[in-house]
Design a protein around this nucleic acid. Sequence first.
DNA 1: CTGATATATTCGCTGCTGTCGATAGATAAC
DNA 2: GTTATCTATCGACAGCAGCGAATATATCAG
Lengths: 119, 119
Amino acid sequence: MDGVIVAGRKMVALLETDECCPTIGEAPLSERDAVELARGFAALADPARLRVLSLLASAEAGEVCACDLVAPVGRSQPTVSHHLKVLSEAGLIVGDKRGRWIWYRAIPDRLAQLRAALA
Amino acid sequence: MDGVIVAGRKMVALLETDECCPTIGEAPLSERDAVELARGFAALADPARLRVLSLLASAEAGEVCACDLVAPVGRSQPTVSHHLKVLSEAGLIVGDKRGRWIWYRAIPDRLAQLRAALA
DNA sequence: CTGATATATTCGCTGCTGTCGATAGATAAC
DNA sequence: GTTATCTATCGACAGCAGCGAATATATCAG
């Protein structure tokens, strides 16, 4: 974000809203942006993770105990735990530990960011 | 898509727009839908493919010759060809052969479908 | 036909990923 | 304390995916 020299003044483009989140349709992606975006989509590129994310995003309470994810997802507990970690590291979900349980919820902003990249 | 019998008439739910494309936030994804969606996102989960798609989606003419993709993407010709095949099979792009060259263009509908799934 | 160019395919390699069983750590109930 | 429950980690395995060199196929120019 360097701005451009116009009429002797450095313009920093107040309306440069695209700077935050590269999109596919605006301009060819740089390798750096492509790598970053690919990381995000990779987190969505697995059925088990999509089901976990869907369970969280569609939950009435806005959060779900990890213990209530194993059965619906149809994978073993270690596998679900693994996918929760991947989703967390991708910034798509966050867990809140309360006593013995961990309550996970989706992070809408991150999801919206990836959605916006496909515009 | 069976519709429901209401007052003796089979209602086919004209507003049942969700039937076409499952979304993450509406209801927990079935394994089947999750597998299908994951396939789509897997196609986006690679930097080289995102750059190819971006080059096509942002092209003024709406299409780009495959020969003009190799250099910008920074991969070998066979690798670019491989990624073009993956994107094609995912329904994200389509190629049109004219003489020696193949002109590829993005398919906006498919992209919008994946974008909508993240709602 | 011959040569040149564009694209796809084959092959082998390397590294990553999804999966689960076994196990460890943390917390609560008793 | 002991026991039960929830979660994470480790280890191992099979399978897949990205990459490029070499090659094959297709099309055009001459």
